[in-house]
Amino acid sequence: MSRRRSEQITYFLIRLVMYFIVLVIGYILFDIVRHGLPALNWAFLTEYPRKSGSEGGILPAIVGTLSLLAGTILVALPLGICSAIYLSEYAEQNRFTAMIRLAIITLAGVPSIVYGLFGLGLFVLFLNFGTSILAGSLTLACMVLPTIIVSSEEALRAVPHGYRDASLALGATKWETIRTNVLPYSLSGIITGSILGIGRAAGETAPILLTVAAFYLPRLPNSIFDQVMALPYHLYILATQHPEADKVLPLQYATALVLLLLVLGLSLGAIIIRIHFRKKYRW
């Protein structure tokens, strides 16, 4: 067998590996869409669950997940963007900055269940928020914070240095420069990265398991101190804890599909924003 021939075979094998991965991802998505779509209808999205989730819809879980998302955004976005502004615009190369960076890397590596334990210890028990939207949102916010900081800093650093110099040279203060000539141009990148991070939070189960999620609660929350159902937790319960798990399989698939659509929808939205703004600012 010639060298050329054996190289061709190796290339083929590497390509095979890559497309095997693609195929597996594709199959998972296909399987969930195929089985989830038939059970998905308007009533399923807008009705309350009945009989421990054996019948009815998933409205409270959708509302729960959306309110958790809103809470997470409200806390993590300003905090993350401000941190990124500090790191990109103000920070000098010193020990303190190195410590902040180490902390961010550490936060990014903390397992989600450990965030759950932390949220339980600090927000639920110590601060006495109870298992609530507030405790859950804060826990998720801690978890997505590093993602938001890293992607926002990247977006801020992508703004050409000349804009900052020109603005400062015209007598603008540092903050005026950031507000008028750095933030506006990096906003699309910041939003994109943040949505990708927050989208992942929407699908997380472990951190909310201990801090907010209700097993079965067929009503809507009244305040941020209420427990809620959440899509990922609901899917987990239906799939593993339901006495007749096999019977409610269509509902499990439909719930998985809704969760998937929500998370992938957010990611897709982020990617579309990125493409749109890439055309607007080209440097």
Partner: peptide, 14 residues
């Protein structure tokens, strides 16, 4: 990237 954003509970369910 898409694979990264599939929630783990969905993968677990699958």
């Amino acid at each position: 990237e898409l694979l990264a954003s599939i929630p783990s509970v969905v993968l677990g369910f699958f």
